[in-house]
């Protein structure tokens, strides 16, 4: 029996967890926020479909999250990790960092502007792939890219002209 899928989130401020809370609730997934690398590693080692979001600090003295990404892709290559940075970079630095993060084993590197739809799409696509790896595809199923989550348009105010005429 497959256990409930989980989104493990290593971050300091809880912002990513808040952005993914709605998706997790809709899909009946667990959200496991954590602040330490060790606890994140023990959470992803649990035998369940899992996607790891790591908030990365692009600095010399903070390589813990980067080490986590590297260790994870070596030890548990089936657990995808998404590196999220909130530092705005110019094009050249962004390419440099994105290449470094991918090289360390991240499945996706996200930089500002970070939006909820992008985080949700990344989580849902990678989780679907993780679930497929765990329980397998339906017989004869062909690989296909996941579709972006349909977004509800904000409700437009309805102007009832008849009502306005009544008030005149």
């Amino acid at each position: 029996m497959t256990r409930v899928p989980a989104l493990v989130i290593l971050e300091a401020d809880g912002w990513i967890a808040r952005q993914l809370a709605d998706l997790a609730a809709e899909s009946a997934w667990l959200i496991r926020p954590t602040r330490t690398v060790d606890s994140a590693l023990s959470l992803v080692r649990e035998r369940r479909p899992c996607v790891l979001f790591v908030q990365v600090e692009l600095a010399e003295d903070s390589t813990g999250p980067l080490r986590l990404i590297a260790d994870l892709s070596r030890e548990l290559p089936d657990v995808p990790s998404v590196a999220v940075s909130d530092v705005k970079l110019n094009d050249a630095d962004r390419v440099q960092w994105a290449a470094a993060l991918f090289d360390l084993g991240a499945r996706l590197a996200l930089f500002p502007p970070l939006t909820q739809p992008v985080l949700e799409d990344a989580a849902s696509g990678l989780m679907a792939a993780a679930i497929r790896r765990t329980i397998g595809d339906a017989p004869g199923a062909k690989p296909s890219a996941p579709k972006p989550k349909p977004r509800r348009k904000p409700a437009e105010p309805v102007i009832d002209l008849a009502d306005e005429e009544l008030h005149e």
């Binding site: 995808p80 094009d91 590197a109 792939a129 996941p146």
Partner: peptide
């Protein structure tokens, strides 16, 4: 650079490859 084409939406792959940065 490894990209999971069956695990990421095509627009995310296109953005990671050809988007800004």
């Amino acid at each position: 650079v490894a990209l999971d084409c069956a695990g990421l939406q095509p627009y995310l792959i296109e953005s990671a490859l050809f988007g800004l940065g």
